[in-house]
Design a protein around this nucleic acid. Structure first.
Lengths: 146, 146
DNA sequence: TTTGGTTAGTTGTTAAAACAACTATATGCC
DNA sequence: GGCATATAGTTGTTTTAACAACTAACCAAA
């Protein structure tokens, strides 16, 4: 029997995600101060499109861990803001392929910088070893619950 | 100069909180299956009231890391659902002290159980040592950004 | 080729999040 | 005491989240 030094249900912050909320808010503020006019949720979509442009809404759902209705509306708003375009797939007419506009492509570098900055601030005083452990655990949690 | 093995901005999951989102959804499902009629956000308020009953909305804001308007509406809904009562403070007439109803007190044990279960599932295969590191890092992040 | 099941995306609804602007009360300084 | 400032809470508004229910298109098997 394992010797638990703590009650697991005491992991309130894990469930409520106060740390990730704090990081997201900080990043949002940086976006606002730079007049980027971009929400964190929109950024999380662009983040994946910057890595691979022209993927379907469903692909974006998997990548961002959001459901289909949420993605429909996120893409709606990104399209309204002129950051992406829906192009119907020729191979599969059910699909919309989502493409970045020039405007959105230009946002990649500044956004990347703000994200870097934010994570640096959040993790100041934390050793790289511990960050690696966290990344590992977060990944396992994600796999366990998927 | 530290030798970083990774780009910190690659910590996408940290910012977007996919792990905590996954845990929260799992817990929400358990609440729904048990017909508890309770959102995770409401649970996060009750969680603190179960530890200390009769605290102000402002105290709950600090504890749950939410802003005042959010708390007003959370308490509105909890009150409508018959789980808490607002009692004006006699010492400071600006304050509402929030008290649990009997109904909400009875929900503590089952909720605690579901939270325990969820965290067990989320962290299965993760050693206690690593969980401790995560708790530590999440706490530092929270402190760094507050 | 038709039928049944699956997948991609949209729409409707309710709760919540974030921000600004507001009221009311309390407190501290002159 | 009176005034400036801070604190507690509410209201209004826009965006997002999650779920269910829906349409349209694809696919595979009879």
């Amino acid at each position: 029997m394992p010797n638990n030094q703590f009650k697991k249900s005491e992991l309130y912050s894990f469930i409520t995600g106060v740390a990730s909320t704090a990081i997201a808010r900080r990043l949002q503020k940086k976006f606002n101060q730079a007049d980027l006019n971009l929400t964190i949720e929109q950024w999380s979509v662009l983040y994946h499109l910057w890595k691979e442009d022209g993927i379907s809404q469903q692909d974006l759902c998997k990548a961002t861990f959001r459901d289909k209705p949420s993605m429909t509306r996120l893409v709606d708003n990104l399209e309204k803001a002129g950051m992406v375009k829906r192009i119907p797939s020729k191979a599969d007419r059910r699909k919309n392929m989502i493409y970045l506009t020039e405007q959105a492509k230009e946002m990649q570098d500044p956004c990347y910088g703000f994200a870097e900055e934010t994570v640096e601030e959040a993790l100041s005083g934390v050793s790289d070893d511990k960050i690696e452990v966290c990344k590992e655990v977060l990944k396992i949690v994600y796999e366990n619950l998927r």
